[in-house]
Design a protein around this nucleic acid. Sequence first.
RNA 1: CGGAGCGUGGCGCAGUUGGUUUAGCGCGCAUGGUUUGGGACCAUGAGGUCGUGGGUUCAAGUCCCACCGCUCCGACCA
Length: 583
Amino acid sequence: MKLSEYFLPTLRETPAEADTISQKLMLRAGMMRKLASGVYEWLPFGLRVLKKVEQIVREEMDKIGGLEVSLPLLLPRELWDETGRWALYGKELMRLQDRKEGEFALGPTHEEVITDLVRNEVRSYRELPKMFYQFGTKFRDEIRPRFGVMRAREFYMKDAYSFHATEEDAERYYKIVFNAYAKICDRCGFKYRPVEAETGAIGGSFSHEFMVLAETGEEEIVSCASCGYAANVERAEIAKSQKVRENAKLEPLKEIYTPNLRTVEEVGNFLKAPVDKFIKSLIYLADNKPVMVLIRGDYEINETKLKKYLNCNELVLADSQTIEKVSGAPVGFAGPSFAKATEGTSLPTQLPITNYQLPILADYSVENIVNGISGANKKDYHLMNINLGRDYQPESIIDLRKVKSGDFCPKCSKVLAFSRGIEVGHTFKLGTKYSQAMKATFLDAQGKEQYFIMGCYGIGVSRIVAAAIEQSNDENGIIWPVNIAPYQLVVILVNSKEEKVRQISEKIYSELQKAGYEVLLDDRDERPGVKFKDTDLIGIPVRVVVSEKNLLQGKVEVKKRNESEFTLIPIDSLVSEIKNFLT
RNA sequence: CGGAGCGUGGCGCAGUUGGUUUAGCGCGCAUGGUUUGGGACCAUGAGGUCGUGGGUUCAAGUCCCACCGCUCCGACCA
């Protein structure tokens, strides 16, 4: 492609809207433009990268037996009612009506559609397994689109769905997809890590996310260098600590006056007590029903774990009125014990120790707190020497904690390391969640009706493009990994008016093309500085500079984008030597 | 949805105590010329419903009201 005939609107200045590196560089390099919040146009140069990534993904899907299809974007409500997701998916689902007021959604994912197709067309175990995949635009009305195409409302994705006759086969195939995803990340030149993840709105029994490692990533992950355990922090389990409270001497419960002291920190300073003596009592509304959750003062609740345990759709911290209503005290004084003690006295005057109107859940971390401190459910009072079993009793004691630096690996007890990543792929083992809801069955070898066992597997193709930039750039611009570079080579004419320079460059350009390379020819009537700056900005892996000076020796200059040194190569051997620069 | 901010040629911005009545600057763009190894220079020029609607006023980019859009922080979310 000759740049003089191309459309590459590069920008010298960064548009004010951009915050992340990839977004800035995609705008500056003329890859995309924004049409609305979270909605982008892909320009020729950007689309070329997108298509490169798409092709890598397609090849790897085809290798593992995937069958490419193309499913509609406009999805009728009825299908989504079958699985209940019309109601459950929430505001993220873009909804619209047709002229007859029929309701539709713009597809955010296609489990319903593909399951409908398969239940209508696949009857026998003999036809299984089958894996269908597609590339297409997905719509999700993100609450806050950001980071350019990384969290957009409309984005380009590969989604795949597999159907199996048995659990074993589904798991066997899950591993195959997992390996294919790793291969895709390898080919895209990523430093990445697959991690255990939560299944979220898609559902299913287990899942993995493929994280491209980047400081700027949205996701936080933990990993264990010793045994290889890796998980999204949302998911990461906590190793249960040893019980130490046996034989501990229980001091009498005391009520103490703590005027206007609400937080663990304030009360801790006041009482000169360490934070790990505190039982933090949080009141949540789970689908509008209040629940109290206990955790040690220096830890935080992992709301994903809590939500999963409660099996609720919506989980929010309760508002102050609710807190006052259920605890009997303003915010800051709630606690798990509804036993009564009077100030200065040593014994509870009255049990019961639980309040049955308010279910109480506790994290493992409170189990070992002996003679702890909590709110007294009374304005300006806290309780000292509160003890599990004697003064309060949660319904269950489970893992509700968010991992924290210094925590140990749940598998091998070594210290966990924290890092950040960009989620470019997600694999789910779905089981029969969708096939049961949609009555999708086949006949097994015994002639018996069975539900399909399913898996689903997504890759954010547009997100991969941004992730690649996020992971590989410098102050001058993008540095494309060779496999997804829109062009591998650029030939620059130092002075495009020099007849000899022009002739030789055109010749080199066409020879390189004939040799199978994707080449840009910068034949614009611009000064060399402009061309060098643009070449660096758009990140072409190797540049060939043709100048009058070097032509005198019959040579051209070849330089890799990520190196500062160039090499002079005789024109005659350029085509044969160029491959050494592309590794 | 809560908090904050912004909206002025393609991009980045100034102008906002109302009043040089033709709204500026830099970049980019067009034409001509000089240049040609890291974002050149000179000259000439094109390009603006000052986000939208309403109001106040002799007079509104500037003040008031409403709305829309965009961005950031948070909550939330594959």
